[in-house]
Design a protein around this nucleic acid. Structure first.
Length: 816
DNA sequence: TAGGGTTTT
């Protein structure tokens, strides 16, 4: 059996659950996993210690097996002998919660474990992710092993900081150091300290003396008292990590014990280039062609930083593969016949039944090689080529991917990895408050992770497009996300949990004080915090919303401007991934350039003169009017089947009307169906929270208040919500006139310029080309925006036109 | 005028 990382467990064909025979079969498979031999040792460690660190490489089976060992061993349950029968009835602290950084992993691993245990998902084993909670279907509290996203457990901790339901928390994939996992570390430690029966050694006690810190100590004492009253059993924590970063975790949990479990990987030979490469695209191209020429079989995975590089290289590969083969053929025939003519023939064949009319370029075979691209912004229909097995007549697959293939998805059959050594990295400058996304060197850990992708099916090879001395200079690990983002939402979240001073929160890696301060300032400006940095009533409302503070404020301002229904839609759409699908590509194939024109034309009908907020409304409203969609957000298999039938029925009924199915509507309009569906789900969740009574932890306002066609109300609402992010056009007349004259000479009539200066901060920014205002002539004098990001230039996105004088009206404290 | 890695509530 090849080693398989956790997230793909459920993809393997499995016998159907429930029968004893099948359970036995599963048992055989389980016994072969490296982790199985350690089951007794693991259980003993967990039983005797409150924190256990498990270091296990890919393919050990840790994610699926360890929670089952703990459950089956049952020793932890013995703690319950000591608790009162009343609490036993409450079923407190019976459950094991395993957190995952990604939704898909939580769902698929839960499914796999349920199959191994011979039950349906949602019974003994369940998953809990946003919009999809299988543990909620058959009455609460049935699941004893819950796989949840770490964000979901974090939300739960807001209402229940003691994590009363759980006896054991397993923090999986800790080495990834995602924002949510990192916060969860502190939250779990807090609950553990309150529930422990032994004295907790607190290494942080001596270093902080702030008043808030004293308040936090008081709260900790109260939590301890409550835990005692509830007779809560001690909380056991298992930290699972794939790489050896034990020291970091051990100094964080000084009382922890640690166990190392071998993984199951085939050996991967690593090759470096002798010198630094000037152009990694060119270098990747020749490496891939050489592998293809000299190596018998095995698929190739190439890691590149972004979609642009990927589409470029894909175009080059297709071109060279067809030409080289032709060239090779003509040279060999040349030797015999002396002919020099290189025949040009169309070598590109479409795979029947796989491609859509739209994007056949992505799934095409060139001389027996399937070149496919993979990045998150690519619609799922386009991504499938990378996952499907090779079609007939195809001997090799070359996949070009971003770091999505590092952790988020698994690809089968990879024997060769080509690593550019580059990735796009998000960073945050707390001095300017600007986020950036730029090409950076990968870390050693990342490079190893990439190499590992070649050793899943058999021994593999990895080709690093940089010299070994360059590898030695790389950072050991990537900086944790918490040190690279705007912390406003983190601070709001911690405040919402009743942590008075987030600066003294027990972080695994404490973010910079400057970044913290910046977040405080932003929240203060939004009036979420008062002069004493205490959460205001308004701040408490903001914390109830699963949104960035900017969007939370935008939504909470909407009732005042009578545009709640509209803002709900706009925020849901803007906080989703890219709604508009723009077929990428180098433009070297006619196919792709024609497609981007088609997409642009399709998008044009949604474009509003006033900018992105009204544009998003138009897309959503058109979709509601023209497409048939039934949400599949909640419910199990049966429920989904029922909904699908409902949708087909609706489609039949609507056959006479102009309504079409969701998928067709999205394809026709070059809209990402997944993003739109998600936006719809987000909208439903937000409006549920908004309309729920305040006594039930809601916000208690009418979500149906609409401004109708009164766009001024909407734009004023946008001004009030986004006043911190306003910018006015740079009107350097000399400069503008010069460029207009130049354009006129070139015959360009569209002389609109989208250059702005932010009202607060005074940064020079540009309208991002994906803004609906991009290209408007003349561009608006003043805009508000939802995002500011530095890539090749400093861009604002989500821009909407406002009137400058409104700012004084909506935020008099800031503008006069 | 010219373009965004990945994730989550």
């Amino acid at each position: 059996m090849p080693p398989t990382p956790s997230s793909s467990k459920a993809k393997r064909p499995l016998p159907s659950p429930t029968s004893n025979g099948h359970r036995r079969q599963h048992m055989e498979v389980r016994k072969k996993l490296p982790v199985y031999q350690f089951r007794k040792e693991i259980c003993e460690l967990v039983y005797q210690n409150e924190v256990v660190l498990v270091v296990a490489e890919t393919g050990s089976g840790k994610s699926t097996q360890i929670p089952q060992f703990i459950y089956e061993n049952g020793k932890l349950k013995n703690f319950h002998k000591n608790i009162s029968s009343a609490n036993r009835k409450l079923r407190l602290a019976h459950t094991i919660c395993v957190t995952q950084p990604r939704r898909v992993a939580a769902i698929t691993v839960a499914k796999r474990v349920a199959e191994e245990m011979g039950c349906e998902t949602g019974t003994l084993v369940g998953h809990r992710v946003r919009f999809d909670d299988s543990t909620d279907i058959q009455g609460r509290n049935t699941s004893r092993i819950i796989y949840a996203t770490d964000g979901m457990l974090l939300r739960e901790a807001t209402a229940d900081p003691l994590l009363t339901r759980y006896q054991c928390i397993v923090l999986d994939e800790s080495h990834e150091r995602s924002l949510q996992t990192d916060i969860l570390f502190g939250v779990v430690k807090r609950a553990m300290k309150a529930r422990t029966r032994s004295k907790y050694i607190d290494e942080k006690n001596s270093c902080s003396v702030s008043e808030e810190f004293e308040k936090d100590k008081l709260i900790q004492m109260r939590m301890r008292k409550k835990a005692k009253e509830l007779e809560l059993v001690p909380l056991h924590v298992i930290v699972m990590s794939a790489t050896l970063e034990v020291e970091t975790f051990q100094s964080y949990f000084p009382q922890s014990k640690y166990i190392k479990i071998p993984g199951r990987q085939f050996p991967v030979q690593t090759l470096f280039t002798p010198d630094y490469q000037e152009d990694y695209i060119d270098s990747a191209l020749s490496t891939a062609l050489q592998i293809h020429k000299y190596e018998e079989e095995g698929d190739i995975l190439i890691f590149l930083p972004g979609s642009e590089e990927i589409e470029n290289l894909a175009g080059l590969l297709r071109k060279y593969l067809s030409e080289e083969s032709e060239l090779g053929r003509s040279i060999s025939s040349d030797e015999k016949s002396g002919e020099h003519e290189i025949k040009k023939r169309d070598m590109v064949q479409s795979i029947k039944g796989m491609g859509t009319d739209l994007h056949s370029g992505h799934g095409s075979i060139v001389n027996g090689v399937l070149v496919c691209v993979l990045y998150a912004a690519l619609p799922p229909e386009q991504q499938i080529f990378a996952f499907q097995s090779k079609p007939q007549g195809c001997s090799r697959k070359i996949i070009l991917s971003t770091n999505i293939a590092e952790t988020s998805v698994t690809l089968d059959g990879i024997r060769f990895v080509i690593d550019s050594g580059k990735c796009k990295e998000r960073d945050y400058n707390s001095a300017t408050g600007m986020e950036s996304l730029t090409v950076a060197d990968v870390s050693k850990a990342q490079a190893r992770q990439r190499s590992g992708r070649a050793g899943r099916v058999s021994a593999g090879m990895t080709f690093r497009l940089y010299p070994e001395i360059a590898f030695d200079t790389l950072d050991e690990t990537t900086a944790p996300e918490i040190s690279r983002v705007n912390l406003a939402q983190v601070v709001l979240q911690l405040k919402g949990m009743g942590i008075h001073d987030p600066r003294s929160f027990d972080f695994l890696t404490t973010p910079s004080q400057q970044a913290m301060l910046k977040a405080f300032k932003q929240l203060y400006a939004l009036e979420a915090l008062d002069d004493t940095m205490e959460l205001t009533t308004y701040g408490k409302e903001m914390a109830k919303l699963p949104l960035d503070p900017t969007f939370a404020h935008l939504l909470l301002q909407s009732p005042k401007y009578e545009c709640t229904a509209e803002m709900l839609t706009a925020i849901s759409m803007l906080s989703a991934e890219n709604i508009f699908y723009r077929p990428g590509g180098s433009g070297d194939s006619e196919d792709s350039s024609g497609l981007s024109a088609k997409a642009a034309a399709a998008h044009k009908r949604f474009t509003s003169y006033e900018g992105d907020i009204p544009t998003m409304l138009t897309v959503y409203n058109c979709w509601r009017k023209e497409a048939i969609y039934i949400s599949s957000a909640k419910g199990g298999k049966k429920e989904r089947k029922r909904r699908r039938m409902q949708m087909e029925e609706a489609s039949r009924k609507n056959s006479k009307s102009s309504k079409i199915l969701h998928g067709d509507w999205c394809t026709r309009n070059f809209i990402s169906g997944r993003a739109l569906a998600r936006a719809h789900d987000v909208r439903q969740q937000l409006s549920e929270i908004c309309s729920r009574e305040t006594s039930r932890n809601g916000l208690g306002f009418d979500v149906n208040v609409s401004c109708g066609d009164d766009i001024v109300k909407l734009l004023k609402g946008a001004s009030a919500g986004l006043f911190l992010q306003a910018a006015s056009r740079v009107s350097n007349s000399v400069e503008i006139n010069k460029s207009i004259r130049k354009d006129m000479q070139k015959g360009i009539t569209n002389t609109g310029r989208g250059r702005y200066k932010t009202k607060i901060g005074g940064a020079e920014v540009n309208l991002h080309p994906t803004c609906s205002l991009f290209g408007r002539n003349p561009p608006p004098k003043c805009v508000v925006y939802t995002e500011l990001l530095v890539t090749k230039r400093t861009y604002i996105r989500g821009a909407t036109q406002i009137k400058e004088e409104w700012l004084a009206e909506v935020a008099p404290k800031f503008f006069r």
